[in-house]
Amino acid sequence: MADLTREAGETLATTAPPQSYWRRVRKRFMRHKPAVFGLCFLVLMAIVVVFGPFVLPYGFDQQDYDLIGLPGPMNAEHWLGTDQLGRDATTRLIYGGRVSLAVGLAGALVATFLGTLIGALAGFYRGWVDTILMRFTDIMLSIPPLPLVLLLSSLFRPSPPLLVGIIGGLIWMGTARLVRSQFLALREREFVEAARALGASGPRLIVRHILPNAIGPITVAATLAVGSAIMTESALSFLGFGILPPTPSWGNLLNAASPWLSTAPWLAIAPGLCILLTVLSVNFLGDGLRDAMEPRE
């Protein structure tokens, strides 16, 4: 994912987007079939995880004491069977999706905010601000990401909001570099010069004049960050350091299902498939957005 964002850094937005720009973007996006598929899948997934729990007859932590001990088979009452504690696996899968998607979105938001902030400051002010911020970015890029997340999670045992912070705090660097390169180019453009001549101050120039012109690449990077964040959360939870049961997440569902791989493999297959399809859709969507917003030719 990070590799896709890197490419995005090399293209530049040309002018302030006029009205027709968005029409062209939409047109180009609709031609990107995988991206359209991805968007549809994500919308569908969002509907299911947001509204599913209201429709389903079971609670995510509701245990059927008669079924405790072993995973139960798939049947009409329990489409994906029950888990080792007699809980409906379908309900947990859907609720787990809610948690995983929420953590993924929130983590990506944090990362995008941090990346945009750091990249904008570095690119706009240049000089020592740029040097310090970019050296810091280099440092963060040079520490192996998963071990660092694991280390932080095991030392501090984060609550879900803190977990979001940790995940977001470790995947912002690509965005920062991207935004910086956008700012470096844009700050020299005529419309910025004009605004500056009219007396616009630094923060105002950044937020009002430059940022809107970099919105395309930032959107793409933010989209791809959602995929990274979901993957990171699921890896952490799988290793037992992320979201703690009984709150389900796709990662900890996989963890809980792994002892029953030979007797109830569907319990492990389903959440993994959900992660795969969701992250795949996010990546398709990001690719489509890039093609639409930053045409290469």
Binding site: D61, Q62, I68, L85, G240, P245, A256, P259
Partner: peptide
């Protein structure tokens, strides 16, 4: 104890009973 499946499962059953 984290990472110990047996204990974490027991914990969840007890949480439901406390609920």
């Amino acid at each position: 104890q984290a990472g110990r499946a047996d204990d974490e499962n027991l914990q969840q059953v007890m949480m439901a009973q406390l609920q």
